[in-house]
Design a protein around this nucleic acid. Structure first.
Length: 278
DNA sequence: GTCTCCCTGTTC
DNA sequence: GAACAGGGAGAC
């Protein structure tokens, strides 16, 4: 089960969960995978009951619940994590990580087959490292810094590593994963292996526009479901039908008809058209 | 900067 | 029965 929630998927989960979770009170907590819970299951079980959820937000690939006492709960789904709003009587799924019981008879449940996902209870004066070091939001978001083309170029200035590695670096841009990175580079006509500091002014403009476009389209199609990504209501997205290169090894490039290549770049499986992407 | 590890289901 | 999928932490 591969799902890879990136920015558009987490944004869709947020939008589908928000109406159900807003102003609900957490009545109790059940932990099934202790190591995923930070600072620890005891802390979460002690702090959460009685707290009201006053906001549901997203920052990069983190989904964040704000509680009425100033505490926040951040979920990171990594590759196979799901967040679901389910009736209390629903049987507990295999690989369930945590269940937050709510005062409306429903639960917020995190299920994660590969157990990479994390749940982090924190306050703003002591955010988890990954969240604290997160780069700007490519589409802009409530209160978060926005990505500017200038900051992207600045980050690339001394980097000879592949442009793909730069786009995947969450400290440079928040929210891109393997799928949308490959799609953005295709749309911009840039080879993923190009050294980040080798892009021309024109290429930077195309890439900046492409990143924003693929993410916007991904959200519009309610995310990409490769195998099992589902939103907060358990429904798959549609964006897999719109991918131009990702997962299409040896298939025809939708622009030029040449065969799409698969290689390993920045430590990740990488799909690109050698003819269209230079 | 790059590599390894974490983890399990799917694919080869 | 091994290789593979990959986000991010930590090691080097």
């Amino acid at each position: 089960m591969i799902s890879m929630p990136e920015l558009p998927e987490v944004e869709t989960v947020k939008r589908t969960l928000a109406p159900h979770l807003l102003n609900k009170v957490i009545t109790s907590v059940e932990v099934f995978l202790a190591k995923a819970i930070k600072p620890g299951p005891e802390m979460v079980q002690k702090e959460l009951p009685g707290k009201r959820i006053i906001e549901i937000s997203r920052r990069g690939k983190y989904l964040i619940l704000s509680l009425d006492n100033g505490q926040k709960l951040a979920f990171h789904l990594r590759m196979t994590g799901r967040l679901l709003y389910l009736h209390r009587e629903t049987p507990t799924a295999k690989h369930t990580v945590i269940i937050l019981r709510l005062n409306d008879g429903f639960d917020l449940r995190m299920v994660d087959q590969r157990k990479f996902g994390t749940v982090n209870l924190f306050t703003d004066d002591d955010p988890p490292k990954g969240l604290k070091n997160l780069g700007p939001e490519p589409l802009g978001d409530e209160g978060a810094p926005w990505l500017a083309l200038e900051s992207l170029k600045k980050a690339a200035k001394r980097r000879t590593a592949p442009i793909k590695a730069l786009l995947l670096d969450q400290q440079v841009i928040a929210g891109l994963g393997n799928i949308y990175t490959d799609e953005a580079l295709f749309l911009a006509g840039i080879n993923p292996a190009r050294p980040a500091n080798s892009l021309t002014e024109e290429e930077w403009k195309r890439l900046f526009r492409a990143v924003r476009e693929v993410l916007t389209e991904g959200i519009r199609h309610r995310g990409t479901t490769r195998r099992d990504y589902v939103d907060g209501r358990g429904e798959p997205g549609d964006h897999q039908h719109y991918l131009k290169v990702y997962g299409r090894r040896n298939q025809k490039c939708p622009v030029c008809g040449e065969s799409i290549n698969y290689s390993r770049t920045a430590g990740r499986g990488t799909y690109y058209c050698p003819h269209c992407q230079r």
